[in-house]
Design a protein around this nucleic acid. Structure first.
Lengths: 290, 290
DNA sequence: TGGGATTTGTTCGTATGTATG
DNA sequence: ACATACATACGAACAAATCCC
């Protein structure tokens, strides 16, 4: 069962990983710029292996997200991204205490203070026959929906891709602003409440992790590595009559995002600053043993 | 900037991916067994490329999780796993309606009915100086904790790895069963309530996605592909005095797990059977457009 | 049971293209 | 223009696991 040949490229990859994690290789950015790993030719001599074998080792490190290679420049250790902590449920239905009001992201998520959220133009489409959305909204498979898509930035960095879906009837029965490719500053839910009397009395969230598609790779600057994954959250909002009236699909870059939920009585500082003083160390370090 | 040469292996990989997704290659299991892709030699002739170039294409498909290769046997399309939907918060603090009671998984998560959960022996350790846990439990970095680790199976399939941490004082002041390597059938929280008077009045969940470590790869049978990722949820439980008294770290295989949270008034069937009638199609299919 | 054929895994060598400095 | 560095591609040989007769 176990491989008899230790695989030369494996040894090289393990050794390089060890040297990377120990900070031996390409440690801190040297102020002016980052320092690359030794070139493939150097590693070839260092490990007494052919360049192709060295490249096999580097390919594994790239795939695992440890390094990136740039043609003509070199291979670089991937820096740890800054983690953004997002609270998707605070304590009561709605927001975290102290959250700024009347902004979209506040209605569905509380972000840390002193962070600036900017929003792209809304791309509005009318779609028909998207089965998955129809299922969430409990509509027939031939039903038509308004989809409102936005790119959202945090401190001018790409942060999330978000698309909300509404029954087309909403627009034809009064909520015409849903069809305009403009942000709804007071929040779509508040607008629907004012225009149609809808009230959000509950929501359901579904969370998955998956590999990004090409569009998401572009927006979040993700590659093909195993660390390049996204969260996809689907929030279904329910009105007082017990029916879903909105579905919001949000895609987050998982390498720099932590999602938070709270229930019951939770200390205020945890609500307001989840992940505070968080190191990037994983609790799995404590878990490990067998 | 853009690559001038289309990259031969890229073309081959894209073509193979297309043929895989269309079901052209290695479609349904032929009852007795699965059918492999054409051999590397066959592909070599088919695409008029060298074996190494074909292997570059296959390497990409492997890395993206489309196929797996087995020495001496062939390369096979990866079947879609069955998805397990887990509700981590129902409506009120605690459980989903209809959930079976007095079982560990019920205290923290509601699984679909007709599924059988079995639990490994508990591995108990006393640990000191694990900074991350100390932070969650708001203890000094030199504090000591009891860690209770379990492997948990769903219908005899590896399902989650879970480790709970408690202050060591709990054991020395009455809750001695925490130190025994045996399951606590009524639930550790209930036991702590009876033994020490602790009551869970709220919790905080933190969710991340990351690449699995070697132990997790073994347990969940994961490889190195980009689809081989895990959720790690950290649940901190708070007692009436506002202090955390338990931290539970749970690791889930993300390729076959969906996490669910509910808030407010949500239809009963969504609470009881989240993801019902769910296809494996991603809502992103609807999102996509540019 | 054995042994040859098949298939993927590993490693080396070599050449050329492309991006960078 | 030149050197450096990574990307792509082809060819070849042997090892290891499996399959089949």
């Amino acid at each position: 069962m176990a491989r008899m040949t230790p695989a030369r490229w494996r040894d090289i990859a393990d050794d390089l990983r060890r040297r990377i994690e120990s900070g031996d290789l390409a440690p801190a950015d040297g102020a002016s710029g980052r320092r690359p790993l030794p070139s493939e030719k150097d590693l070839e001599h260092h490990y007494r292996a052919s360049r192709n074998t060295v490249r096999d080792a580097l390919a594994w490190l790239r795939q695992q997200g440890y390094v990136v290679s740039e043609q003509g420049k070199g291979t670089f250790v991937v820096p740890q991204p800054d983690i953004v902590h997002v609270t998707l449920r605070a304590a009561e239905l709605g927001l975290a205490p102290g959250a700024r009001s009347a902004e979209w992201y506040n209605r569905d998520a509380a972000v840390p203070a002193h962070r600036e959220v900017t929003v792209s133009q809304v791309k509005v489409e009318v779609q028909e026959g998207t089965k998955v959305i129809a299922r969430y909204l409990r509509a027939g498979s031939g039903s038509e929906f308004i989809s409102r898509h936005q790119e959202i930035f945090l401190d001018d960095q790409p942060w999330v891709l978000q698309t909300s879906f509404y029954p087309l009837e909403f627009a034809t029965s009064g909520a015409t602003r849903l069809l305009l490719p403009r942000d709804i500053p007071e929040g779509a839910v508040a607008y629907l409440g004012a225009a149609l009397g809808y009230q959000e009395v509950g929501f359901h969230d579904e969370i998955k992790a998956r590999v990004p598609d090409e569009n998401e790779k572009r927006f979040f600057s993700l590659g093909d590595s195993a660390a390049s994954i996204v969260f996809e959250t689907v929030r279904t909002a329910y009105s007082a009559d017990g029916n879903p009236f909105r579905v919001t699909v949000t895609v987050w870059p998982a390498d720099r995002t932590r999602l938070h939920y709270n229930d019951g009585k939770v200390p205020i500082d945890v609500l307001k600053a989840p992940g505070d003083a968080s190191t990037d160390a994983t609790p799995a370090d404590d878990t490990e043993s067998g």
